[in-house]
Design a protein around this nucleic acid. Structure first.
Lengths: 225, 225
DNA sequence: ACATTTGATTGACTTATATCACCCTTGCCG
DNA sequence: CGGCAAGGGTGATATAAGTCAATCAAATGT
């Protein structure tokens, strides 16, 4: 249990904090461990804490009416989860669930918000982070509304390999349902496209391992919708 | 051409600026006028300016691949348009077009970003604004992906009456194509749902005037997808 | 006054995708 | 060991929604 001061796995946003500020963060920090499938916070619940993922992987999703879900992103080491409700209505607007064994540090939201007020550089990193997230949302919303199933699944695979796991092949324990929830389709449709992708030698799937073997073609499919 | 100092139509975010700061904003301010349909800025172009709408109405939309569009929001008096690219890649990630005769003040983005750095209250309002926009995007993304046409159009009508025009009935010169672009459907589908809504006495349309006459029922349709 | 464009509307048709029902495998637990 | 739950996979079918094509009305330009 190191202090934030010497933490090797701390989010880059904390670089702009002084030692004194880091200590203040450290003082009200709680280190947590979650098993795969455990809820970190749930949509609609009040938000007290700022969550920083130190190991594992967390999926962030919106729960719709008729128990449909849409995964809007992932938080991996070392990301903090930006909770827009913290500045608006003190409620969570999406849920966070551990996809695998996950550790996270929780810090009181007030402390962080206070530092955003007093430390300009911190505020700037913070805004940059939110902006990046907003841009990601634009891309996802465009993909989901303008493309059909093959294009959406291509986007999902490229996103996972490029942004989430940063490797190819990548080992994942996301279920087909999860892949479907990222791509805005049903589990069955996800299974079917993946099958055609395999048949066309665009990807290879072996258990938890997914490999993109024809990225250019996948990108073409993404572009054509 | 009043100065920002005594401007009656200035965005609430400027409340947190000092007189001296307001004067600095005023000095590099350009007042612009746009006719209906004119582009204020286009997706992909570099972003130099911070845009604040003082009269009229502006639609913000993402341009997808095969010239499909998705309207992600509106800017009305007195909103400023948050441009996430300003903090990331200095590019616009959506386009802005005047829906009607529109006036706007342009301020150099650098000046604003500088004030975000130096004025804590300004930074805080700024973050609150971004957060609110992000929450709105979540709602839209959930509506678009989880609901079918009647639910989506119900959401659109409720949104326009409640958030954009803040009146019922409301007079609009959005085209059917625009309504479709908000709701993520084709023009033809938009026309057809609106027809069924009219037949079921949920709404009344007379030229540019749209009236919601059975809001509870529309809300039910929205909830059931 | 006529021609041209733009948006609204409708109907017929096609297709993408969800739904449903079912089976298979694997791992886990009593 | 046997049964059960969870995830993966498949086929048949239904249907929501897009596409295409044509018409009509209003607005605009010449």
């Amino acid at each position: 249990m190191t202090s934030c001061l010497h933490c090797k796995r701390r989010s880059e946003i904390f670089e702009s904090l002084s030692e004194e500020e880091l200590e203040r963060v450290d003082m009200c920090r709680v280190s947590m461990h979650y098993n795969a499938g455990e809820i970190i916070f749930k949509q609609g619940s009040p938000c007290y804490d700022f969550v920083c993922v130190t190991s594992g992987l967390v999926k962030l999703y919106i729960e719709g009416e008729n128990d449909r879900r849409l995964i809007i992103g992932f938080a991996k080491p070392v990301d903090y989860i930006f909770v827009p409700g913290a500045y608006v209505d003190k409620r969570h607007h999406f849920s966070a669930v551990a996809c695998e064994e996950t550790s996270a540090c929780l810090v009181e939201a007030d402390i962080i918000q206070n530092m955003v007020r007093t430390n300009q550089n911190f505020a700037n990193s913070f805004i940059r982070k939110i902006s990046t997230q907003a841009i990601g949302l634009f891309e996802q919303i465009a993909s989901l509304t303008h493309k059909q199933i093959p294009g959406r699944m291509a986007d999902t695979l490229i996103y996972l390999s490029g942004k989430v796991y940063s490797s190819n092949p990548f080992s994942t324990n996301l279920t087909r349902q999860d892949l479907a929830d990222i791509s805005g389709m049903t589990k069955e449709s996800a299974i079917r496209v993946l099958k055609t992708f395999k048949e066309d030698d665009l990807i290879r799937i072996d258990g938890n391992l997914i490999e993109i073997i024809n990225l250019p073609m996948l990108e073409t499919i993404s572009r054509n919708g």
